[in-house]
Structure formats: C-alpha cells, structure tokens
Design a protein around this nucleic acid. Structure first.
Lengths: 128, 128
DNA sequence: AGTGTAGTACGACGTTCGTCGAACTTCCTG
DNA sequence: CAGGAAGTTCGACGAACGTCGTACTACACT
C-alpha cells in the first residue's frame, strides 16, 4: 500500500548514492553534488534549520568565509555537521585553503536549477 | 556555550506556543497561525517532505481539494499528520465542510510574508 | 436505525536529526 | 621541532519525525 521509504532515507539516497559520480575522486573528501543533482527536498530540508539558515544568510552578506567566522552557539563538531549538510544538499561549496575551508554560496547553480528560490529565502530570512 | 535547543524544539515552540492566541477558540480543533506568526523555518521544514510537497503542488494546481482526493501512498492517519504539519506551518487552510475538510493554499498570506517564496518552490517542484 | 464515508486521536515502532565530547589530522608559525 | 589553530571523525544520547494500526467521531445517505 505504501513505499515504506521515509523522508530521510529518500534524501540520504539522493544525497549519497547519486552524488559519487560527480566528485568522489581520489583523496578529496569534499564531494559536492553536480548542479543537476541538487534536489529540491534536500535544499529545503537544509534550509529548515535555524543554524544553517543563519550560515547561508551570513554567506550571502559576505562570500568566501571560513567556518569559524560565524561564531555559532554550537561546538565545532556540530558546526562541521551543518556545513556538511549544506554542502551535500548543494547549497554551498567548500574549498580547502591551508588549514581552513572557504565556504561560498552556490548562487548561480541554485538559480539555474531553482530560479528565484534562494533569493526569496534570503530575503525572507533577512527582514526579521 | 550553546542554547541546547534543538531545531524541532524551536519549531514546536513557534508552532504550538505562538499559535494559540490566533485561533484557539472554543470547539474548533483547526487552529491556523496568523499571517505574522508564520515562521520561515517551519514553512521550509513543512515543504522539505516529498509527500507534503506533493500535496502543496497538487493544491496549487487545483484549490479547495479534500484530503482524500490526493491518493497518496500512505495510510489515512499519516495523511492527517501531513495535513496538520502543513496547516500548523501556515501553508494551508482547512475548512470543515460536512464530513470532509476543504484544503486551500494560503497563497496571499505567504506572498505577503515571504514574497516569491511559494511561487519559486512551486515552480521548482513542477518541472521534474 | 443502520451502514458508509471522511477524517481524527492515540500509542507504538524504527529512523533520522541535532548536539556533544574526546581523539585525531593538517597546516601554519614561532 | 614544538605548539597552536581549524576542522574532521566517531560514538553516544535524547528529541523529533514519518509511518502504521486500531479505535473513535461526525456527518450523510439510504
């Protein structure tokens, strides 16, 4: 009668099984989904957490920021977790730069795939 | 060092504690958040589930539909759950009509509160 | 009155989520 | 080289989520 597949499982499937072909190369642990692999549900889920919304909003104001520059009220490991969710959902791109990771918003990719979505979310997040 | 408040707790707080003043009248169990009480994170969370996204998309194509008219691959109780999440997030309005509930998208309220957001999500959900 | 239809309420279940702390890796710098 | 700074990894824990089945309510139609 039903598929017996939970939301999380579906998201995990599209985020972990579809991802590899794009950037699971050799030693790079930072694999991002290709533009066409970005899933709407995964993006919305990634944005539905206040902490991550804050990160994205901060990144919109100033790009290429390091993880630690956000001063979030959580520990480093939790921070890592949130950045990974954002990266695997296709919202941000992380580039290794020495001992830090430079984060940037994937504005163009997102705007091609889901026109207007990121902008409206950012605008909504800003005024409050 | 941190607030120790999880995402769910925060959403629940804004969805259940802020809600009452709006429409927790006498015998009406269908309480909707007022327009100004609609929370971005709650909206995004509500939309991040494929089943609920499907409901919203279907409601966008044809308004004022009954719960059973969606033919979702889940049981009735699960269906009730999803409609409640959507209602409490402020995405839909449910009106009692005899033995059924008529569901309609709160397009105007959402567009005033988060301009362009619903439209871009609907557009993104549609083409695929 | 009796049956059916549409939906809700409640409790249970397994999974996912957000969080933490401790241990670890990597790079930079004195 | 020793120390620190920036992140990651891993396992744990409690809360929240999606789902189900059963029992229930409320209205409608013979």
């Amino acid at each position: 009668m039903n598929t017996h597949v939970t939301q999380g499982q579906a998201i995990a499937a599209t985020a972990r099984l579809v991802e590899p072909p794009s950037k699971l190369d050799e030693q790079d642990p930072l694999c991002h989904p290709a533009r066409d692999e970005i899933e709407l549900a995964a993006v919305l889920h990634a944005l539905s957490d206040p902490m991550r919304l804050r990160i994205v909003a901060g990144l919109a104001r100033e790009d290429k920021r390091t993880c630690g520059s956000f001063d979030l009220p959580v520990t480093k490991s939790t921070c890592t977790h949130h950045f990974r969710v954002l990266r695997e959902a296709g919202l941000i791109r992380q580039r290794l730069e020495g001992t830090t990771r430079l984060n940037s918003l994937r504005r163009e990719d997102l705007d091609v795939r889901f026109p207007g979505l990121l902008e409206s979310v950012l605008q909504a997040a800003e005024r409050r």
